[in-house]
Computed example of a mutant assay.
Amino acid sequence: MLMRARRATMGVPEREILAFKGGDSANWRHLEDGVRAAVGGYHAVVDGGSLADIMARLEQVPKPLNGYAHEGVAMGLTGLDCVLPSKSRFREFLAGPGDAHVYMVHIGAGEALARMRRRPEPFLARLDDPVLRWLVMDGYGFHQGFFARAKYVDRQVVPAFLSPYARRVFDQGVGRSIWFTAGADVVRIAAHIAAFTPDRHADLWLGVGVACSYVGGLSRQEIECLREVCAPHLTRVAIGAAFAARGRHRAGNPQPDTDLACEVLCGTDSLGASTIVEDAFAALPRRMDQPGYELLQTHLFEVFTASSLPA
């Protein structure tokens, strides 16, 4: 009964899980697998039990999908922190089994804040990592674009309480959500982004690059089509693809789709792209007068601009 009560108050209903789907093709099923893995991790927390119990459930998740599952766990733990703030379950997870999936864990925290209707910037200001904490904002944007598509994609609303830089990372999350809600259809993705004001295009496309590399599911021909339609923002797409590759290699769950995306969009395999991002982290100054994530992306922009990306 307690489990059912938790599901009723905090769970993600089946209708919400499937609301994004526009068909039953291989692409749609591939996207659904990722969504269900994330929701499964979230429900593992909502259902109750110790962190050890939750992690035991995650061991059943196929390796290519376990990043999504960790994202969901972080979402659930952050949601509990919002309603039962006696301790930080999120920090405990981040310092322990969530460490390898640190990128996805921060994203999951942002999704929880959106679901719990909490403002994200006070939360990320309390986090230690000056770079990765901004992924909370990405997760916030993804949740809003995915679960409230009519408002945040169709009507293109941006929360008025966000700072100028937070709005940019919010858009990167929205761009990633468009990958899912458009069924990874390159033509539809391009049409959605074209409907936004031009000043938002670069960050929306960066989010698409993250999704293409991390989520995968496309053929070489489809990714080459993506490279053509995003041509004015190819460098941003390459940054997103490389960043996702770094996340997968850090977590130890690289997949062939990430190699393919990086080859077409970055001109190197996923390990090469991951190394570029790792080097960019190493080049960051100790004292930062700008958001760390912005400094990282600026460095990557310079690297990819100088590298003659595939045409």
Rank of each mutant, 00 (worst) to 15 (best):
A5D: 13
R6A: 13
A19E: 11
K21F: 00
D24T: 09
E32Y: 05
V35R: 01
V39C: 04
G41L: 08
H43G: 02
D47E: 15
G48A: 02
G48Q: 02
I54Q: 00
A56R: 15
K63T: 11
P64I: 03
L65R: 07
L65E: 00
Y68C: 15
Y68D: 12
A69Y: 06
H70F: 13
H70G: 09
H70V: 11
E71Y: 03
M75Q: 11
L77Y: 01
C82R: 13
C82W: 02
R89E: 00
P97K: 07
D99Q: 14
A100P: 09
H101K: 10
V102Q: 12
A109H: 05
E111R: 14
L113C: 00
R115Q: 04
F123A: 02
L127V: 04
L127M: 13
W134G: 03
V136S: 08
Y140L: 09
G141H: 11
H143D: 09
F146H: 10
A148M: 14
R149L: 05
K151T: 12
F161Q: 15
L162Y: 04
S163K: 13
P164G: 03
A166E: 10
R168I: 14
V169C: 07
D171E: 12
G173F: 05
G173C: 06
F180M: 05
T181N: 02
G183F: 03
A184I: 01
V186E: 01
V187A: 14
R188G: 03
R188Q: 14
I189N: 02
A191E: 15
I193N: 03
A194M: 06
A194Y: 02
A195N: 14
L204E: 10
L204Y: 09
W205H: 10
G209M: 10
G209Y: 06
V210H: 10
Y214G: 07
G217Q: 01
L218V: 00
R220N: 03
R220K: 13
C225R: 15
R227S: 09
R227W: 00
E228V: 13
E228P: 01
E228D: 11
P232N: 01
R236Y: 07
V237W: 07
I239W: 06
G240Y: 06
G240D: 07
A241M: 03
A241V: 05
A242P: 05
A245L: 01
R246G: 07
R248N: 01
H249Q: 00
R250D: 06
Q255K: 13
L265T: 07
C266G: 06
C266W: 07
C266V: 13
G267F: 09
T268K: 13
D279Q: 15
F281G: 08
A282G: 15
P285W: 07
M288C: 10
P291W: 10
Y293L: 15
L295V: 05
Q297A: 08
E302V: 03
T305H: 12
S308R: 15
S308L: 12
L309V: 08
